[in-house]
């Protein structure tokens, strides 16, 4: 089958050639796929706003020899509020950029698709910025890391396994470390540890209702180190947010 029908989140979109765009999609059936959409930048194009980042669409993809092309698109979700608030936009960008970097092309990840969709839906439902201190952003990122197999170790020392008090966070060793194993770890406050626990345990809808805080910002900085360690690069969306 050269044509495939799938539901997808548009993670990002870059200009290509005269009037085309190069999309990074996260599809429900085939995971991450990069695809070209022709003519979308012309003001008279039939695509309109359907393939803008953060939209969820039902797509028909043509799988060519070297690349996939979008041949039709039907909007499923458009998160209109999210697009009107800079902090919400940043929060959405963190989730979408992280997903694009954590998952290889063509691996089916239906749970990641569902997570992306509900993350965007929660951000759209009313976001309490700034993005860098928002529990929802921390939760979105930690849940994506969990799906990729990189959940930080939070219940014991990631280095020696001891259950004592955690004093630092080490990206290389995968989580919290105790006083005997500080090494490359960065010091962490009990409040930031609590924020990480909440981000793992609570559903996104509950995290959305929680107020932004300095502890969440500290936790996000540590989690970002873990992300960068595994993904091999830092998130541009967090550079944008000046974390």
């Amino acid at each position: 089958m050269r044509y495939a029908t799938t539901r997808a989140v548009v993670l990002s979109s870059r200009p290509l050639g005269e009037a085309d765009r190069w999309l990074t999609l996260f599809t429900r059936d085939q995971g991450r796929i990069d695809a070209v959409v022709k003519g979308v930048r012309r003001t008279t194009s039939r695509w309109g706003g359907r393939l803008e980042p953060f939209n969820v669409c039902d797509l028909v993809l043509y799988r060519g020899r070297t690349r996939a092309t979008v041949t039709s698109a039907q909007l499923v979700d458009v998160f209109r509020h999210l697009r009107e608030d800079r902090e919400a936009l940043t929060a959405a960008a963190v989730g979408c950029e992280a997903a694009a970097l954590l998952f290889a092309e063509g691996e089916p990840e239906e749970r990641v698709f569902a997570l992306l969709r509900s993350g965007l839906r929660e951000i759209d439902a009313g976001f309490h910025g700034p993005a860098t201190g928002a529990p929802l952003v921390l939760g979105f990122l930690v849940k994506l890391l969990y799906e990729a197999g990189y959940l930080p170790v939070l219940d014991r020392c990631a280095s020696c396994g001891a259950g004592g008090r955690a004093l630092a966070f080490s990206a290389a060793r995968g989580g919290l470390v105790c006083g005997d194993c500080l090494g490359d770890g960065v010091p962490i406050t009990p409040e930031a540890i609590a924020a990480l626990h909440a981000a793992v345990a609570l559903p996104l809808a509950e995290l959305r209702a929680a107020p932004p805080s300095a502890a969440v910002e500290e936790a996000l900085r540590d989690l970002h180190l873990l992300f960068a360690y595994h993904a091999g690069t830092r998130l541009r969306a967090l550079r944008f947010a000046r974390l």
Binding site: A92, A237, F240
Partner: peptide, 9 residues
């Protein structure tokens, strides 16, 4: 244009 996805601030 500003783009959180591309880190253009």
């Amino acid at each position: 244009a500003l783009s959180p996805l591309d880190g253009v601030d």
